[in-house]
Nucleic acid binder design. Structure first.
Lengths: 244, 244
DNA sequence: CTACCAATCTGGTATGACCAATCTGCCCGG
DNA sequence: CCGGGCAGATTGGTCATACCAGATTGGTAG
């Protein structure tokens, strides 16, 4: 007998499948902030994995301020309110766990707030290469629409390129996080093919305003664009309480 | 001989000291995005730790999109530009690694953009308990000033409580990340005791505007407040190129 | 009832081994 | 001399075991 792994699991699916099982496990227990969760050894046994795998997952959860490991004591849940990180939401989305309805609306509102200011800066600071990048993305978007593809990724590329034109790299990091955590919802939004042409037209209007160096017009265009998205989710969540 | 750990290191200092050594190691090599870094086994030997510790650190770096682990292949650096997360900047600050000068200004600019909008929302939506919380923080701030303490943490508490009053929890998460990554700089800012009274007075003005439900006045107050901070760092970085 | 001590539990860490896919380079046939 | 194919080295992924040292806990002795 060379090695006897209980489960001869060849490839355990996703990379962070353990985190994907750990998070629901925590959530289902309705644990409060400060509560202690089972020890590493117990979690390892419960999930049928080695302690190393558990420690790796917990290290990530700790970096994302979901959990706190206290040496010689135990593992404790963090307060989500102030300590929760946006990266935790990104991870959650990557694992396929949908956001709470409330959070969806908060994310869209925040996107509107940030991106309205972003296009202002973009209109004031844009360089030649920014315009070129934006034009390229818009051209790809037109092709995608003509080909009947889902505009979700092109939409994200447009908005991120817009933020990139502000020259503020930190700004780009923040907005990027929101697009990473919203990819599935965005794909659902564009599932209805009628929305893509409207979005694209609004993108073109923004491009024009930014190119012309008109912050007010750019901001107004972005505001209208994202208020539309906001209204969509607002209505959808009011009608069907089923989460998306 | 029961166990022969090469280095009988009892407590290896900080929790994530390995990450703190790993990041400079990567940075000093001037590696580009996509480059491969040494294997887990080599890193373990080089840093004199076990492979488990290396894997734990790499799991965190991967969650923060600093690194990508490809099975059967190697560990590769991610593109910082679009993929870098804000949590990575928080971690960096926790490890004592200062931000680049450029990033400091970008962070302050972003804070101003976000918080100006935050106080608008706060003025529109604030509840009784929000006002009460803000008042409590201001009272603590007055005490801290009277006692000659560093106002840094109270300053952060005020701004975060302001964002909390928007009712948008995601907003709070984002702004909180910036305060976590800026704590050391903020303490340095308030080292000069003359700044604390001015900040406190501006905070009071904001509180008044929010309490009165006047978004425009609140926004203006926050804008002036943070432009002052922005100007401070701008001047400081222009004079002394030494990082803070 | 209190003070103290020992067993136990916990996270932190190192070691060693195996798996499976990938990559590398050598060897052989054309 | 060139090109294809196979074997071995490499690499991340995983598990099991063992030990450390501080914290906790329970019971016992005073």
């Amino acid at each position: 007998m060379t090695n006897l792994p209980g489960t001869s699991d060849p490839v355990s699916g996703d990379r962070s499948s353990l985190i994907g099982r750990l998070l629901p496990f925590i959530a289902e227990r309705r644990l409060q902030a400060g509560d202690r969760i089972p020890s590493e050894r117990e979690l390892a046994e419960r999930f049928g994995v080695g302690r190393g795998a558990v420690r790796e997952a917990l290290a990530v959860l700790e970096a994302l301020r979901i959990v706190e490991r206290r040496p010689y004591s135990g593992i404790y849940l963090c307060a989500v309110a102030r300590q929760g990180s946006i990266e935790a939401m990104v991870l959650q989305a990557e694992l396929g766990v949908p956001l709470a309805e409330e959070e969806v609306l908060e994310v869209v509102e925040l996107r509107r707030i940030m991106e309205m200011q972003a296009v202002r800066l973009a209109a004031e600071r844009r360089h030649e290469e920014d315009i070129a990048r934006i034009d390229a993305v818009l051209a790809e978007g037109a092709q995608a629409i003509a080909a009947g593809e889902n505009l979700a990724d092109n939409d994200a590329a447009f908005h991120l390129t817009m933020v990139e034109a502000t020259g503020n790299h930190v700004f780009l990091r923040v907005v990027n996080a929101f697009y990473l955590m919203s990819r599935n919802r965005r794909r659902a939004y564009f599932r209805d093919g009628t929305r893509a042409p409207l979005s694209h037209a609004q993108h073109v209007a923004m491009r024009d305003a930014v190119t012309a160096g008109d912050p007010d017009r750019a901001e107004a265009a972005m505001g209208g664009h994202l208020r539309g998205v906001e209204g969509y989710w607002l209505e959808l969540l009011r009608r069907g309480p089923g989460e998306i």
